[in-house]
Amino acid sequence: MRTLPSRKPLGEKLLSKLAAETAAITGSADAKTEAATRYGRARKAKWFEPVVKTLCELAGPGRRCMFCSGSESSDVEHYRPKAVHPELAMEWENYLWSCTPCNRGKSNRFPPETEDGGLLINPLDENVWDFFFIDDYGLLTPRFDSEAGVPDERAVSTRDLLSLNREAVHESRLMRLRNLRQQVTDTFGLLKQRKLSKGEARERLETWKLEPWQPDVASYFLSGPGKDRSPFKEFLAAI
C-alpha cells in the first residue's frame, strides 16, 4: 500500500464507450456471463488501452501493484469482482492495478459469487495511512483502532487476504527500508559536513521518491506519516 495520485477522469469518449458496454451488460439476461465476455474482449481491444495506460500512470514508476508494491507483473483488477457486480465490470471507478499473487489471494478467499470485497481497503480511493503504518522491520501493520480497542478490522482483513507481508514482498520491503535509511543517514552526514548542498540533497530526495523498488517504503517515510521517524525527520528538517 502506498499513497497514489487521485484517480483522474478519463476522456469523454472513453467514458461513453465504457457506459455503452455497461448498458449492454445490465441489459443482458445473463449479466455475469455478458460481463466476463465483454471485459475479456475489451482487455484485448485497442480502444481499452488508454484505460490501462491511465492506471499505469497512477501506479507510477515501475507500474508496481497498488496493493503490495511488489515486483510481480500486474494487470487491471476489479475492486468489486465483476462476477458479483457485473454492472461494475466496465466502470472506471472500479478499476485498480494489481499483481497476480494479490489478485489470487483476493479471488480465492473472497469467492466472487458471494462476497463483494467490501472489507478490502481501496488503495487508490482511500487514504491508506489511515489504516496502515510500516514498522521498523518493514512490516505493513494495521493501525490500532483505539475506539474499538482492536486493530482496524478492514486493515487486518486486507493484510491477511492479500498476504501483504508475504515473505517475498516483505523481504524486499525490509531491504528497501534498510537501504533508504542508510542513504538518508549518509546524505545527512554529507550535508552536515557541507560536502553536499541542500539543493543536491533535495535532488537526491526526489530520486528516492521515484525509485520503483518497493515504493511503499519511500511513500511512507519520505512523503507520509513516516516522515516523523528518525533519521527521516532530521534529514527532512535540514533541507
Binding site: 514498522d135 512490516l139 483505539s146
Partner: peptide
C-alpha cells in the same frame, strides 16, 4: 509458498504487529 517460517513464528509476528500498533498510537 507465502512464507517459509513456521505457523508458530508467523503467529508471533502477527502478535508483534498488534502490540506495536497499540504502541504506535501512543496507547
Amino acid at each position: 509458498l507465502k512464507t517459509t517460517r513456521t505457523r508458530w513464528a508467523t503467529q508471533k509476528l502477527k502478535r508483534w504487529q498488534e502490540l506495536n500498533a497499540k504502541h504506535h498510537e501512543g496507547i
